[in-house]
């Protein structure tokens, strides 16, 4: 029974303290601040500070996506979906592609134009972490 309780507490602590990392290509030498990065993820900024085109990626992993939208963008996932549907159907923007954890790491490692987010425990040395929360 003690083992079970410990295991449950350990799981709970992982859940509570699991961090999310915002990642870019290791060669991306832009200056990053939270406001600029937020604007890229909602389509209001289309370039990094170094002049390189910025392409944001969203995650299909719902818990991480909900945490990112809520804590980093300050909106619920449904509000973000509503926001993008307004832009999409009025010619003002196309929502970012949604990818799996594996695809996120693969894409961000493949090109300097991508920026994404992922559970911090999954980060590898092929990507650069610019922000954690």
């Amino acid at each position: 029974m003690k083992t079970l309780i410990c295991a449950l507490m350990l799981l709970l602590s992982f859940e509570l303290f699991a961090k999310t990392a915002i990642i870019v290509h290791p060669n991306n030498d832009s200056n990053f601040n939270k406001i600029e990065v937020s604007r890229i993820f909602i389509g209001k900024a289309k370039f990094f500070s170094n002049g390189q085109k910025a392409v944001p990626l969203y995650l299909t992993d719902k818990p991480v996506k909900d945490k990112f939208n809520g804590q980093f963008l300050g909106r619920s996932t449904i509000q973000i979906k509503t926001y993008w549907s307004k832009l999409l159907f009025t010619g003002r923007g196309v929502p970012p592609n949604e990818v799996t954890n594996e695809e996120m790491l693969e894409k961000v490692a493949s090109s300097e134009e991508f920026i994404g987010y992922i559970d911090a425990s999954l980060v590898n040395d092929q990507v650069k972490v610019i922000y954690t929360f």
């Binding site: 900024a45 289309k46 370039f47 509503t82 549907s85 307004k86 159907f89 009025t90 010619g91 003002r92």
Partner: peptide, 29 residues
Amino acid sequence: QINENTQVIAGRFAIPIFKFSDTVDIGFA
């Protein structure tokens, strides 16, 4: 998309003569 801030479109489209006129059909929005 001319630059990061400016976009021009040509053709047939809705204009916001009222605040939400261009999204009036999108119930979800």
